[in-house]
Design a protein around this nucleic acid. Structure first.
Lengths: 357, 357
DNA sequence: TCGGCAAGGGTAATCGATTTCCCTCGGCAG
DNA sequence: CTGCCGAGGGAAATCGATTACCCTTGCCGA
């Protein structure tokens, strides 16, 4: 038996035709064949072009992306670096991006940086070595290779978390501060002024801005935000972090009746902790989250959450890419509309606050 | 302002060094430089090699993947085609694959076929044009380009759903029939014999095998499986399908107390439908699912489910790839161990069945 | 002393597609 | 009649890395 490499090479060459074979079959030069494929005007009679197209059909030819990328110094790949694919909301965004890129004839190459700068660096360098047409960073962290890419003028789009190194880099994502503010507004509307906050890492994350927007609006309404109890838990896994953070929160004598979690996953963990403590949700304690995971209406209707329109990310990002490719240096950030879904008929702090007034 | 393409090309060439520049700086030929990089033995004195390495460090050189792929006729990319990224369990598998590939110095390119043969074809052709080193199909459907790839001897691994065109193609996944059988065993153990089944498409899907395993075991225990009520709902979205299927099931006068759903998502939809009908879960009706989504213990502790060890997929698939690259023609399928988690203390059908005995 | 061999290294072909020159041939204005 | 222009098309350079092939030098055994 021949070694598999040989067998493979043999079948590859016989089965995958090259442009030269197409040209030979059509009786033209490779140059002409290439021009027909790329639709260069005034370079072939209709009759010649048709001969080339016929040869392509007969051979089942498809241009090899690698040769093309080498010559053009740019491939059809778009690199997408996600901070954490295990997070369903990121996966949904990735899926949306993929679908939109496909509509543009581009291919997504998806990586998971696990929120680690060194992994992100490795991927950025690899993507640049692949001559990707653009890189989309869904939750970027600061890293040397990112600086290199920015300095080299690579096409970069930051999603969900602004560029940690340059606040004016192209950004597509939620108006996180606005979303936080919206929760504040709805709470104030209902007379809820005593809340607690659960968060994971706040360092340059989306959560940071959500918290800022929430507190700003509360402060404007006269709430003493410095007194609002905040809790966090260790680890990257937001669910586990939420569980522990809720544990901390429950130990406080003045446990607030409404808990704002800076992501749905945090709320899931917190929910379980609250149930373990014998609390009714949302009777004794109500939760607000961000992302509004699509499964919420089905199995977590206790959770009020700000919907992130996952399906809108792809088109928005592609739009941003076109603006960049058209020469716009610093396109305005594209802020997607958020929407707060309130699933609790009444909130536990509601009555209490109304009485207080 | 110069057009962006020019600006980009200019910066690219100045910032991204080529092998030729490394060789020039080290005072050797490109051949030698290449051999040092690739660790070809007996082709350079240690001193020469060190000069080359120094030049690489100083220039920040990194081999361009495109030139390499063109020459070797094989890139470092592995194409992963997932049937439905919106399904968290597929996303988790993709994440695991990505992590393992990274450990091998490979890069994942992830696509979403949306269960459509034409989309899958488009991606398979594109991946082949990219000279991918292997393709991993997580939930493949039958399609012409798949046949081409198989015939050409491409490295293919089928995950979670065997090759629809050749049952002996390399397979990594759950022992779906075994998992179905395990549910049957545990139900029989508890004396539950009246069940219902909710499923989505059964055509060549994992669900097909799960159902087969379940029914085989039940039949062996004397249950009349032909009489087991089955229901399905329209659409690709398993949650919605589950919701409607449960609606159908509830209309039956002999609604079974235990419902086996062929995926967790189906169970989520069914859960909501049952709650809307005023049923207690798991008091009035209990659910079994497959996948055991990681969020289940946190917010869906009413669901009994067969855990799919998502994290084991990556290593298993990489192992399979190595066997294929080592020349094994038809490696045995790699069946991952499943584990049924029972979260309901007692099942609604339990007492009833015991009384019946 | 001579042939052979291994180490060390360079030259150039090669992969597949794109693109820059260059050539030829009509037609047309001067 | 001459020069110019545009359409149509071919030859060859090019992108970056790998590798087949060749050359030189020094050493060793016959």
């Amino acid at each position: 038996m021949p070694p598999p490499a040989d067998r493979k090479r043999a079948s590859r060459t016989s089965l995958t035709p090259s442009l030269a074979q197409v040209a030979a079959r059509a009786g033209v030069s490779v140059a002409t064949a290439s021009r027909v494929i790329n639709g260069v005007a005034n370079k072939a009679t209709e009759e010649t072009a048709e001969r080339v197209r016929a040869a392509i059909r007969e051979l089942g030819y498809r241009p090899g992306s690698v040769g093309r990328a080498l010559r053009r110094r740019e491939s059809r790949i778009v690199g997408v670096l996600a901070a954490n694919l295990a997070n369903p909301s990121m996966a949904a965004i990735a899926s949306s991006i993929e679908w939109s890129l496909r509509g543009e004839g581009l291919v997504m190459s998806l990586c998971d940086t696990h929120e680690r700068a060194d992994v992100q660096d490795e991927y950025i360098r690899e993507m640049r070595a692949q001559l990707v047409r653009a890189m989309i960073l869904v939750g970027a962290v600061d890293s040397p290779a990112l600086d290199e890419a920015r300095a080299a003028g690579d096409t970069l789009v930051f999603v969900n978390r602004p560029d940690p190194g340059d606040p004016f880099s192209p950004y597509v994502g939620l108006d996180n501060a606005g979303a936080g503010a919206e929760i504040a507004d709805r709470l104030l509307e209902r007379g809820v002024r005593r809340i607690g906050v659960l968060h994971a890492s706040l360092d340059r994350t989306a959560g940071h801005w959500r918290l800022l927007g929430l507190f700003d609006r509360l402060a404007a309404a006269g709430v003493d935000t410095a007194a609002i109890p905040c809790a966090t838990g260790p680890g990257l896994d937001h669910i586990v972090a939420g569980y522990h953070a809720m544990g901390t929160m429950l130990e406080r004598p003045d446990r607030p009746p409404v808990i704002v979690c800076l992501s749905d996953l945090l709320a899931y963990g917190a929910y379980r902790r609250a149930r373990e403590a014998g609390l009714e949700v949302p009777g004794d304690v109500a939760f607000f989250g961000f992302d509004d995971n699509p499964i919420n209406p089905w199995i977590a209707d206790w959770l009020n959450s700000v919907r992130v329109p996952s399906d809108d990310f792809g088109p928005a990002i592609v739009g941003m890419l076109h603006r960049l490719w058209n020469g716009e240096e610093r396109p305005d950030p594209l802020l997607l509309t958020h929407q707060l879904t309130i699933r609790n008929r009444r909130l536990p702090g509601e009555t209490e606050s109304v009485l207080r007034r």
